[in-house]
Design a protein around this nucleic acid. Structure first.
Length: 512
RNA sequence: CGCGGGGUAGAGCAGAUGGUAGCUCGUCAGGCUCAUAACCUGGAGGCCGCAGGUUCAAAUCCUGCCCCCGCAACCA
């Protein structure tokens, strides 16, 4: 079973921030989850390095575009390393293989008569160095950014016959039974795309005559390929297109393209049209999440409220930063992120529940059994209850990419253990019934271990750490894969009788 | 009549196929003492934007209206 998930390739005019890490962390959690479930996963992220804005940004720093993108793309690689992102590929649009692929695809489209040359006359803003539409002007007829009147300018460009694809795209998006159905999530975004699609499609310009920093159009070296077209093609370059003798290309079409809502149109309409036009399969699912505000304000350099991945990691640690980023707000709609919200979620979910339960159980074992797992028959009642929450709630939400709800299911499962402890009152049993106490503690630790398997995608390091503390042996990820392939094998749990629990440190100190 | 989303307890949100209104946080009361002043139980708190309609029955379907947000940004 193969599974291919992508993040957008990030445009390099800015350093990585929480917007980028949100998407990438979400994709990583999904990739890790699918691996546990036995899928062979390709997970690609990367950087988008062409275009006028890059040239401008480089110039501002006194660098050549190439120097600039080399530096900037390292920052993204570093950020993903910091966040323990398990991507299997990192594509740069300046990679030689990608340049060749983009040219091949454009050539194919050209040969099929889907690309033609046309003179294009429109308003051009010198400040932006791009054509702008009349509806994008302010009340004085000036550009929003530069407050200057745009000039009428004409340019000869190559156009892609996007207009031909309206029918086929609508059919594939609307018909869920279509063998090449393109699924768009969430629903409200899908409706929006369908609505726009029904209005009709214009052919789009796919080349630039005035921009050098780009991939040359193969049949006309005076033009470069429009940066968006080249960016999209990276998704197939990344897994080894063209197919010849490349096992990776079995991963196409992509199972999920993940992104923020602003670039949904490119992925649901332009990208599938290019693929279909070139005789290739279109992606199976396009999933967009919302934008977020920081403390109610738009995330903005000017306001100065941009949160970097590093700042999150500094405050919460890597695993907690991962967990909090994707759990704080619903996945799909717009949401608000604030430090106070993050702190609260950290305290409730991680300090009070996960962290506290770790030391709660640990101290009981230390106090009553010198830190050893007692030998006792496994009473599986609690274990099965937890299994049910995880298999039903967690798995259902995760597969629907509702990762914030899946994390709620984790919390629910942890609460089951806390409730059971309260119900059994082991501190009383310690005085009255040692056999029963053994049985109870044994079932708590096994159920907790079970939850850790599901926690792994969110917190790959800490889950292993708790696993070790709990006296469970071996590599959590490997055991999780084995468990999902054959759950019955682990009916009696994971921590073995006779194993010793490690002393637990405070994993998540409360934030005051 | 541009397109789309949304209006549900103090806050943030769930609530395909209509049938006693739920969750998290906060708040109040109680319990426990193994645990990171953590944990558990219970309570209070809602005319489900407004007005009509369909129905034995509507937050959920239909009609009309009101209000908020995005489709403009340095941006995922």
């Amino acid at each position: 079973m193969k599974f291919y998930i992508t993040t957008p390739i990030y445009y390099l005019n800015d350093a990585p921030h929480i917007g980028h890490s949100y998407t990438t962390t979400a994709a990583d959690i999904m990739a890790r989850w699918k691996r546990l479930k036995g899928y062979d996963v390709a997970f690609v992220t990367g950087t988008d390095e062409h275009g006028a804005k890059i040239v401008a940004a480089a110039k501002e720093k006194g660098k050549s575009p190439q120097e600039f993108v080399d530096e900037m793309s390292e920052k993204f690689k570093d950020a993903w390393k910091l966040l323990n992102i398990s991507n299997t590929g990192f594509i740069r649009t300046t990679d030689a293989s990608h340049i060749k692929n983009s040219q091949d695809i454009i050539q194919i489209l050209f040969d099929k008569g889907l690309i033609y040359k046309k003179k294009y006359t429109a308003l051009y803003c010198v400040g932006c160095e791009k054509f702008i539409l009349e509806r994008d002007l302010d009340e004085n007829g000036c550009c929003h950014d530069h407050k200057t009147k745009p000039q009428l300018q004409s340019e000869e460009n190559y156009f892609f016959k996007l207009s031909q694809f309206q029918e086929i795209l609508l059919e594939r998006i609307l018909d869920e039974k279509h063998k090449e159905h393109i699924e768009i999530q969430p629903m409200e975004r899908r409706n929006e795309i369908i609505g726009k699609l029904k209005l009709g499609l214009d052919d789009i310009s796919v080349s630039r005559a005035t921009l050098d920093w780009g991939i040359p159009v193969p049949f006309d070296k005076n033009h470069t390929i429009y940066v968006w077209v080249d960016a999209l093609i990276s998704y197939i370059t990344a897994i080894g297109y063209p197919a010849k003798n490349n096992p990776l290309s079995d991963f196409w079409p992509a199972d999920i393209h993940l992104m923020a809502k602003d670039i949904l149109w490119f992925h649901c309409v332009i990208w599938p049209a290019i693929l279909i036009g070139a005789g290739l399969a279109a992606p199976k699912k396009v999933y967009s999440h919302g934008f977020f505000t920081i403390d109610g304000d738009k995330m903005s350099k000017t306001i100065g409220n941009v949160i970097s991945p590093q700042a999150l990691v500094d405050k919460f640690g890597v695993d907690a930063a991962r967990y909090l980023t994707v759990s704080l707000i619903p996945f799909g709609p717009d949401g608000d992120i604030s430090w106070s919200g993050l702190n609260l979620k950290y305290n409730t979910d991680l300090a009070n529940n996960l962290g506290n339960l770790t030391s709660r159980l640990n101290k009981m074992f230390q106090k009553y059994f010198e830190g050893n797992i007692p030998s006792v028959k496994h009473n599986g009642v609690l274990f099965e209850k937890a299994e049910q929450v995880l298999n039903e709630d967690f798995a259902k939400e995760m597969d629907a990419f509702q990762i914030h709800k899946a994390s709620d299911a984790l919390q629910k499962a942890l609460t089951l253990i806390n409730q059971q402890i309260e119900n059994d009152a082991p501190w009383t049993l310690a005085k009255t019934d040692m056999e029963k106490l053994k049985e109870c503690l044994f079932s708590y630790i096994q159920s907790f271990d079970l939850i850790l398997l599901y926690l792994f995608p969110y917190m790959p390091v800490i889950s292993q750490k708790i696993w070790d503390i709990n006296g469970a042996q071996g590599n959590l990820e490997e055991i999780a894969k084995d468990y999902f392939a054959n759950p019955k094998k682990y009916k009696d749990g994971f921590s073995k009788a006779g194993a010793k629990l490690q002393a637990a440190e405070v994993l998540f100190p409360r934030i005051q």
